[in-house]
Write a protein that binds this DNA or RNA. Structure first.
Lengths: 225, 225
DNA sequence: ACCTGAACACCGTTCAAGT
DNA sequence: ACCTGAACACCGTTCAAGT
């Protein structure tokens, strides 16, 4: 991927800190203390340098987060071995792999929605999804649209779960949802009232794959027959 | 919904600013200048007061944003008249209505993933979705899971679009995605290479409803036969 | 070329005091 | 009860200078 303006080795003062060290330290902070604790200032002090030294190696904080996501994807994404024979199963396997890796690092939320997930290491998985969809009968355009639909679903699932998990841990007071649910009028909203006690357990369930299967069924059944 | 500790009218100094005025002003700032320009300090000065006066009417900034979302939902969400006869179409209509309203206010991103969209005014739409799904043959639990799947997809679509739109407007340099796509190896990723020139236009397309239909088809076809 | 120090222009929120 | 002023504990980033 766009390896950045690589430090010219030709001349000048030798570098004291490296992009690699920056990312390594950032990764540690983020896994130990969470994404909101990652600040340029703290990163600098942990590295034993000053905030402004960082700006010689990354353009700004956003680029840093993007590099962090790349790094995470590169070290965690594993290609399914062997790839499933059925194209539909290859789509499932690729999407599930992406989901798994991203769900494991909820701190990613801030960067997640940047464009698409276009880390180099993730591209192979995107290719698998698009390929599986075309082999199942979709045109290339339809397959790209299909990939995007899957991506929206995946990103949404991760973002919603990550945020509510964060909230649950930071906070003891009853959630807004609980308050709302406690005040439901069964006459006006009969099903929600009936479902109210089931809502929290159902929300906690991991239904990503189930939903993904449904989505995929729908995407493939909309093929021009 | 949880109308908050309503100011007791019984005694004490008359209030100079009201929760209503706070929300009205916040709404103006956010629609005029974007969500990142809404700060407690600026809100206070625009109201002609001090930051700390606000904290007498809202608990913190997060509550303010939640109230803002409630307010927006209350004034924009319109129930379909008449509701479609087919339960499947009622699900589509309700989800589309929610999507439309949220897509119109991209500033909502910060609050969107709070729990679920549990604004009081949105509850009727959630009820419609759950009802439509049960009438189509799902159990109540399955219908709630189905609603959540739809919600993930909807939230993801809005979040991804909102963020990339924000990026596009703030920024002229080529996106990360463009850089990645420019360096694709056709041998390794043949479909992505072929799709590369189509990617940006396809991303710009509004495919929410198309994806929603596919998802719904899948959710309903997974009914225990 | 790489790094430092000081400063700019902000944040959300707490605390103690005023009316 | 409601509001104010001052302060706390931070941010990301720019700029000018040092080596």
């Amino acid at each position: 991927m766009p390896r950045p303006p690589a430090p010219r080795k030709t001349t000048g003062r030798p570098a004291r800190i490296s992009r690699e060290e920056i990312i390594r330290t950032a990764r540690r902070i983020v896994t130990e203390d969470g994404a909101d604790r990652l600040t340029m200032r703290r990163l600098a002090t942990e590295i034993g340098s000053t905030p402004m030294a960082l700006y010689h190696h990354v353009r700004d904080k956003e680029e840093l987060l993007l590099l962090l996501l790349d790094d995470h994807a590169a070290r965690s994404l594993r290609r399914p071995e062997p790839p499933p024979a059925d194209p539909r199963d290859r789509v499932l396997a690729a999407a599930t792999a992406i989901h798994e890796v991203l769900a494991a690092c909820p701190w990613i939320v801030e960067v997640l929605t940047a464009d698409d997930l276009m880390s180099t290491s993730a591209l192979w998985f995107v290719e698998q999804i698009v390929a599986g969809l075309t082999e199942s009968g979709l045109s290339l355009d339809e397959a790209v649209r299909g990939y995007r639909t899957i991506w929206y679903y995946t990103a949404g699932e991760i973002l919603v779960h990550a945020t509510s998990a964060r909230r649950r841990s930071t906070d003891d007071r009853p959630t807004y949802r609980d308050q709302v649910f406690a005040a439901l009028d069964p006459a006006e909203l009969p099903l929600l009232s009936r479902a109210a006690p089931r809502w929290t357990p159902l929300t906690a369930e991991d239904t990503y794959e189930q939903g993904l299967r449904a989505l995929l069924t729908g995407l493939l059944s909309h093929t021009p027959a």
